[in-house]
Simulated assay, not measured.
Amino acid sequence: MSTHGPMPRSAWVFPALALLLYALATGVGFDFTPSIGGMIFAAVLLAVLFGTVFAAVHHAEVVAERVGEPYGTLLLTLAVTIIEVALIATIMLGEKPQPALARDTVFAVVMIVCNGLVGLCIFIGGLRYREQDFQVSGSNLYLSVLFVLATITLIMPNYTLTAPGPIYSAAQLGFVSIVTLILYAVFLYTQTIRHRDYFINRDEGKVADEARLSNRMLALSIVLLLISLLAVVLLAKKFSATVDAVTAMVGAPPAFAGVVVALLILLPESVAAVGAARRNDLQKSINLALGSSLATIGLTVPAVAVVAYTLDKQLVLGLNAPGMVLLVLTFVVSMLTFGTGRTNILFGLVHMLVFAVFLFMVFVP
Rank of each mutant, 00 (worst) to 15 (best):
residue 315 L to S: 05
residue 295 A to P: 05
residue 305 A to T: 02
residue 325 V to P: 13
residue 291 G to Y: 02
residue 325 V to Q: 11
residue 296 T to V: 14
residue 314 Q to V: 11
residue 320 N to A: 15
residue 297 I to N: 13
residue 300 T to E: 11
residue 323 G to D: 03
residue 312 D to T: 08
residue 290 L to P: 06
residue 293 S to N: 09
residue 297 I to P: 13
residue 292 S to K: 11
residue 299 L to F: 12
residue 303 A to L: 11
residue 291 G to F: 00
residue 288 L to T: 08
residue 291 G to K: 01
residue 299 L to C: 08
residue 287 N to G: 06
residue 298 G to Y: 03
residue 292 S to N: 13
residue 320 N to G: 11
residue 291 G to N: 03
residue 314 Q to L: 05
residue 297 I to M: 15
residue 290 L to K: 01
residue 326 L to P: 06
residue 287 N to K: 00
residue 307 V to R: 08
residue 321 A to I: 15
residue 313 K to H: 13
residue 327 L to H: 13
residue 299 L to R: 12
residue 291 G to H: 02
residue 291 G to I: 00
residue 324 M to D: 07
residue 293 S to R: 04
residue 310 T to Y: 05
residue 314 Q to D: 07
residue 319 L to Q: 01
residue 288 L to W: 02
residue 309 Y to F: 13
residue 296 T to P: 06
residue 289 A to H: 12
residue 304 V to H: 07
residue 304 V to K: 05
residue 303 A to I: 04
residue 300 T to L: 14
residue 304 V to R: 06
residue 328 V to H: 12
residue 322 P to H: 04
residue 317 L to I: 05
residue 294 L to R: 01
residue 328 V to R: 15
residue 303 A to Y: 02
residue 306 V to R: 09
residue 322 P to N: 06
residue 307 V to H: 10
residue 301 V to S: 08
residue 307 V to F: 13
residue 300 T to C: 11
residue 287 N to P: 09
residue 302 P to F: 02
residue 315 L to F: 02
residue 287 N to C: 05
residue 307 V to L: 08
residue 297 I to T: 10
residue 311 L to G: 03
residue 326 L to K: 10
residue 316 V to F: 04
residue 306 V to I: 12
residue 287 N to I: 01
residue 309 Y to I: 12
residue 325 V to K: 14
residue 326 L to R: 12
residue 311 L to H: 09
residue 316 V to A: 03
residue 291 G to A: 02
residue 305 A to Y: 00
residue 316 V to C: 02
residue 309 Y to K: 12
residue 314 Q to F: 01
residue 289 A to P: 13
residue 324 M to N: 08
residue 294 L to W: 01
residue 327 L to K: 10
residue 310 T to G: 08
residue 291 G to Q: 03
residue 313 K to P: 07
residue 307 V to P: 09
residue 319 L to Y: 01
residue 325 V to D: 04
residue 321 A to D: 14
residue 328 V to M: 15
residue 300 T to N: 12
residue 315 L to C: 06
residue 321 A to H: 14
residue 314 Q to R: 09
residue 325 V to E: 06
residue 298 G to R: 04
residue 316 V to E: 02
residue 288 L to G: 11
residue 320 N to K: 15
residue 312 D to V: 06
residue 320 N to D: 14
residue 290 L to C: 07
residue 298 G to H: 06
residue 325 V to L: 15
residue 288 L to P: 09
residue 314 Q to E: 13
residue 327 L to R: 09
residue 306 V to F: 12
residue 294 L to F: 02
residue 313 K to W: 05
residue 318 G to F: 07
residue 322 P to Q: 05
residue 302 P to E: 04
residue 287 N to F: 02
residue 314 Q to W: 01
residue 319 L to M: 02
residue 321 A to L: 15
residue 304 V to M: 03
residue 319 L to S: 01
residue 301 V to K: 08
residue 311 L to I: 03
residue 326 L to Q: 13
residue 307 V to K: 09
residue 326 L to F: 08
residue 309 Y to D: 14
residue 324 M to H: 06
residue 308 A to E: 01
residue 289 A to W: 11
residue 292 S to I: 07
